[in-house]
Nucleic acid binder design. Structure first.
Length: 462
RNA sequence: GGCCCCGUCGUCUAGCGGUUAGGACACCGGCCUUUCACGCCGGCGGCACGGGUUCGAGUCCCGUCGGGGUCACCA
């Protein structure tokens, strides 16, 4: 047991997209690796955009990925009293001042400065107490003007920021409500966070927050800023975790891929969950951002499909089968063996369901691929398939070995080669020219369906 | 534009002063094979550029170029 405490702090304003999922994951991995705590905080201070549905969606996505948080969820809006108390503390010790500058004026100045190629940093006389007496005001934090703020980021390294470049940021609005850079400090301190692991887009917030920690007399945590995910369309990048779930990814496949994006352990590509936890290390996290590669993501997923426990895989593929329009009972005896024949042939559960649905479709309703029929259902092959069916009626126990023996016997009696009948037979059984091995297909299909499908073969049938 | 970060095959990466620059995905061949896959073997392909430092630089320093982030009374 260590004292490591980390948190994932999403705003409930949408789905959990891949970037957020990876931030959560790295926090989770770091916590578990160090036997520390992984906490969840909902940053809902933006009331306009925050929704309960969003909170639920994020939690459910995290659960699907197996990231379960410790302790109670902290909801930021319930912490308003603590935020107010902290503000008063800063007022009392002189770290903040009232500013009556009007935002519209400032915005204009900012744009002018930007257009002129200069840095705009808010500077006004309010800092020296020269405010308009009865005007509405915000609270600004009094940043030091001299020196620099330094911290050692666990990923990004030694980060130095000149204090003169840090603005006196607003920490409370005119209506008194506190702003992000202020509350995040208070709440992280309250939750006892030891390591703040977040996206690199927060890097420039960090020196501001460090100054606030100091002004409040709070211990400054360690920081680790993760490289962002690039590549792919904005749409795909911002797609939620559930989108990938619906595309047929296994949670461990998604986790494996996402964790390897920016982190590595030598040359190893495939990790199961426990292994990542065991080997995860912030020091091995890259500084440069990486791009999503769907093809590799699918390959990683395929590797996990191959490793997946059969019973679990069968259970996972069921909803995808029903989405394909075939209702299969969970206890259907064909399900498990069917899954085994598809395991090496599917990158996703969607693909698996599409490729294995032929097993469960009524024999007379099996759709046949036109090209395959044209090529393999001929005047010579179809009679052979019917004869093969007759031979197969004599098979005793309907098992792969017995079927194989029977088919081979039939082949020899006709003086043909297996390849002369294999593809026609596959077309009859599967509906197209690609599929699992002939005998295993027949074994899973059962005697009745096998015979019916073989006997149905006729030139031009579609 | 200011400030900050980054820059090894198309992509993800190993490398932490001396390597024929390694692996993975993708791609192209081949093997296996009743098809499709899986698997196996082989190939293609990279240190952004320019200066230094050093006996020696992908590795260290500077510059250039390129990419990203950030500059709210959002989070």
């Amino acid at each position: 047991m260590s004292d490591v405490r980390v948190r994932f702090a999403p705003s409930p304003t949408g789905v959990l997209h891949l970037g957020g999922a990876r931030t959560a994951l790295f926090n989770y991995l770091f916590a578990r690796h160090n036997r520390g705590k992984f906490l969840l905080r909902i940053e809902d201070t933006d009331k306009e955009r925050s929704t309960d549905e969003s909170t639920q969606a994020i939690i459910s996505a995290m659960n699907w990925m197996g990231m379960h948080h410790d302790e109670d969820i902290v909801v930021q809006t319930t912490r308003i009293d603590a935020h107010r108390a902290a503000l008063h503390k800063l007022i009392d010790n002189g770290h903040v001042y009232r500013c009556t500058c009007r935002p519209e004026e400032r915005a204009a100045e900012r744009e002018a400065a930007l257009a002129a190629g200069k840095t705009f940093i808010h500077r006004c006389d309010c800092r020296d107490g020269q405010c308009r007496p009865d005007a509405p005001f915000v609270w600004r934090f009094r940043m030091p003007r001299e020196g620099e703020t330094v911290f050692d980021d666990l990923v990004q390294g030694h980060i130095v920021t000149a204090n003169a470049e840090i603005e006196d940021l607003v920490i409370a609005r005119q209506d008194g409500s506190p702003l992000y850079n202020f509350v995040v400090v208070i709440d992280d301190a309250f939750m006892g966070i030891t390591h703040v692991i977040r996206g690199k887009d927060h890097l420039t917030n960090t020196p501001k927050q460090i100054q606030i920690y100091r002004a409040l007399g709070l211990p400054v945590p360690q920081f680790a800023h993760l490289p962002l995910i690039l590549g792919l369309s904005k749409r795909l990048r911002s797609a939620g975790v559930e989108h990938y779930r619906d595309q047929g990814y296994l949670p461990e496949g998604l986790i494996n891929y996402i964790s390897r994006l920016g982190w590595s352990h030598g040359d190893q590509e495939i990790f199961d969950y426990e292994e990542i936890i065991e080997k995860f290390d912030l020091a091995s996290v890259n500084r440069s951002e990486g791009a999503l590669d769907l093809q590799k993501m699918e390959w990683v997923n395929q590797q996990h499909i191959q490793k997946c426990d059969g019973a679990r895989l069968a259970e996972l593929v069921l909803p995808f089968l029903s989405r394909e329009g075939v209702a299969v009972a969970p206890d259907d005896p064909r399900l498990r063996p069917a899954v085994e024949t598809m395991r090496a042939r599917a990158k996703t559960l969607v693909e698996m369901a599409q490729n294995m649905k032929f097993y469960f479709i009524a024999d007379e309703g099996l759709p046949l691929d036109g090209d395959a029929v044209a090529k393999f259902f001929t005047d010579t092959t179809c009679p052979l398939l019917h004869q093969m069916a007759d031979v197969l009626t004599a098979v005793g126990e309907w098992k792969e070995e017995a079927i194989s023996a029977a088919v081979h016997g039939f082949i020899e009696s006709t003086g043909l080669k297996l390849k002369d009948v294999a593809q026609p037979a596959r077309t009859a059984l599967v509906g197209r020219a690609a599929g699992p091995g002939l005998y295993e297909t027949m074994a899973v299909l059962g005697r009745e369906s096998t015979l019916a499908r073989l006997r149905r073969a006729a030139p031009g049938l579609c």
